[in-house]
Design a protein around this nucleic acid. Structure first.
Lengths: 262, 262
DNA sequence: CGTAGTGTTGAATTGAATCAAGTGTCGTGG
DNA sequence: CCACGACACTTGATTCAATTCAACACTACG
């Protein structure tokens, strides 16, 4: 249905760093961009649970790098661990490549989400992470974050919580992979994306996939072909509508039932 | 081969709280048991990276509960999050049960390992955790651990690292489940156990499985039947020897090749 | 405009699940 | 101390979901 236009609209809505507002840096004159205080994501990101003064302190250690373009690496497997990153706009994927060249996608990251927490233990990153589209991030040198955490109990607690969410998320994936069928995995994946888009005030029923079918397959433990087939199957059942990267969730209830049935 | 005796020997060696030593409490008079300082696991557990004074402070907040017997729960899904636990002896499994009654094992825990870090974020445990055999644990009230972490940078850092290991471990499982065959998963599982036993100075080639085939299956995303079949297949190939719960790894190199081949 | 990357669809194959029947093991109570 | 019952494990036959192999269409970018 009226292809071009709806697609454009979507493309706009999905791109977080849209147009107008958030230019002028306020608290971080050395930065080319918004401070944590004025960042629209501060309700989701590290600043959550911090008061004004505390956020200001956090601001001091955040480095706002140049934008990354599609395919650019944030870091690579075995690089020395140095920072964690908060996605400001765009999206990223983490992946590992085993010796024999088989790749596996370990995660996708949307705005407001934290990247790079693997590596704290080992002092090296265990994943590679690259941008899926034009994206921008905030870099937070971990040693400084750690130091600041001593002074700000809220920050320490919050950071524990973030890491813990990571664990919880991984365990959900564990469940997903160990007992779900291809259809259940795919439905669950779409619903997961949906609520993550909702978190950043994007439509939970209409969005563009930033990743390829191949990426999805490597993440869900399925082949490209299977992912593609499931998409068409779900479309045939009128649960979703697919046009290339554009997804419309037509029947969230029924999608949830697919998983709930398990 | 000479069943009874070898099995007894194993049973002894696997049971961490063996016999002689570690009785008399040293630093913790209120405890019925050893202090962190004198605990044989202190090289693996939380005290790592702490100095004597710091360990003593940690000691103050550790509660050494009565032993748990097989099937006893440490906590259940949705219980209010209160503590993390360090396994002193024995073993535990974590699991979730979905609405329809299908269970999934989310992890196994051996001596020196930390249980209960799910829940920090949500304030409720997301798993249930129960003893697989007679076991004892150290309970560490999290609020106090958090407070102490402010004072002891080493502890904070170490705890970050522990959580991070948890993440790394989950990601390995992710890989395992998303692209490995039943045989690869099983081989990987056995090798994983092997090195965890080695960590606590038990034989890495000869050990007793504390869990059932069913547990293994629920953990690896396989059925009981498949796990059983793979065990016999690996035995036929002379890579392992199986007698009920007793496992002997005959050819670790070849077991690693099974995985490496992927 | 052409080429590489991305996505779809079909047919054949296969690895693991399911169904089914049976043996082995352990803990409990008589 | 033995017998019983519940649970744990094994093995075989069949089925089925997802992979593999193969061919082709679409899209997007230099």
């Amino acid at each position: 249905m009226n292809e071009g236009s709806s697609k454009e609209a979507l493309l706009q809505s999905i791109s977080i760093d849209a147009k107008p507002q958030n230019r002028a840096p306020k608290f971080c004159p050395h930065s080319s961009n918004v401070s944590c205080t004025s960042c629209r994501l501060n309700e989701l990101c590290l600043p959550i649970a911090l008061n004004k003064t505390e956020i200001h302190q956090l601001d001091q250690i955040v480095e706002r790098n140049r934008p990354y373009k599609k395919g650019d690496h944030l870091y690579r497997q075995n690089d020395k661990f140095k920072s964690v990153y908060a996605v400001r706009s765009g999206s990223f994927k983490s992946y590992v490549v085993s010796d024999n060249g088989v790749g596996r996608v370990t995660g996708f990251f949307l705005p407001g989400e934290i990247i790079g927490m693997d590596g704290i233990a080992s002092t090296q990153y265990v994943n590679s992470t690259q941008a899926l589209e034009h994206s921008s991030i905030c870099e937070i040198p971990f040693s400084q974050l750690e130091k600041l955490s001593h002074q700000l109990p809220n920050l320490q607690h919050h950071f524990f919580a973030i890491m813990d969410n990571e664990i919880a998320k991984d365990q959900q994936v564990h469940t997903l992979l160990s007992s779900y069928t291809a259809e259940e995995r795919t439905a669950s994946f779409l619903l997961g994306l949906s609520s993550r888009f909702a978190r950043v005030s994007l439509s939970p029923v209409r969005f563009l996939l930033p990743m390829t079918r191949g990426d999805i397959g490597e993440y869900l433990g399925l082949t490209v072909e299977t992912v593609s087939r499931i998409f068409t199957a779900l479309q045939r059942k009128k649960l979703i509508e697919v046009n290339n990267r554009e997804i419309v969730l037509l029947d969230m209830t029924e999608l949830r039932n697919i998983i709930g049935a398990n």
